[in-house]
Simulated scan of single mutants.
Amino acid sequence: MAFEELKSDLTDSQQAAKEYVESSAEYYKLKTFKFVMRAIIALTVVLFLGTFVMLAVFFLSVAASMVIGNHLGNLADGFWIVGGVYVLLGLVGYALRHKLESPVLRKFSEHYFEDK
């Protein structure tokens, strides 16, 4: 009788462990899916909005270049000046790139490790 009871307890424990592993695997699959979908949605939004922002910046840059060039009397000078501004902005962005890493990492950590 004690042997049968021990055998039953071991079978129940084995079954409970198996169910725990399966439910844990499903949980992590769902958590990973949620994270991946949020990343895909965020990337889609950034690409969509980024396209329109880049188009706006392009046309505004051309307009600014033409206005500056007309004011200076040489259209090419306007384009050189606007191009130089973008080079300076690029250099400043490159110099400050390390200050961007921490906020980006923190933001992604909030989304990945949130407990909802």
Rank of each mutant, 00 (worst) to 15 (best):
S23C: 02
V45S: 02
G83M: 04
V53F: 15
Y28K: 02
V85H: 08
L72I: 09
V87C: 08
Y86R: 00
K99M: 05
T44W: 12
G83Y: 04
K29P: 00
I68C: 00
L47I: 11
E101C: 00
V36N: 11
V104P: 04
K7N: 11
L43Y: 15
I81Y: 06
H71E: 07
V82C: 03
K116C: 01
F59P: 00
D77A: 04
L100P: 02
E110W: 15
E114L: 08
A2V: 08
H98V: 06
D9W: 05
L10W: 13
V87H: 09
F48R: 02
K7V: 09
M54Y: 08
K116Q: 07
L47Y: 15
E4F: 07
F108R: 00
K18R: 11
V53I: 15
E19G: 02
F48W: 15
A2I: 10
L91T: 06
L100I: 10
G84K: 07
V36M: 12
G93S: 15
S109Y: 07
G69N: 00
E101N: 08
V104K: 04
L72T: 09
A95S: 14
F59I: 05
K31A: 07
D115C: 02
Q15Y: 12
V87M: 09
L100S: 12
V57M: 05
V21K: 05
I81T: 01
V67Y: 15
S109H: 12
V85N: 04
L91C: 11
K31T: 07
K29W: 13
Q15V: 06
I68P: 01
L43F: 15
L75F: 14
G73R: 03
S102V: 09
N74M: 07
H71V: 13
Y112L: 06
Q15S: 14
G69D: 00
Y28L: 02
A25T: 09
S8R: 15
R106D: 06
P103Q: 06
V85E: 05
I41A: 08
E110N: 13
L6H: 12
V57K: 03
K7L: 13
D77M: 03
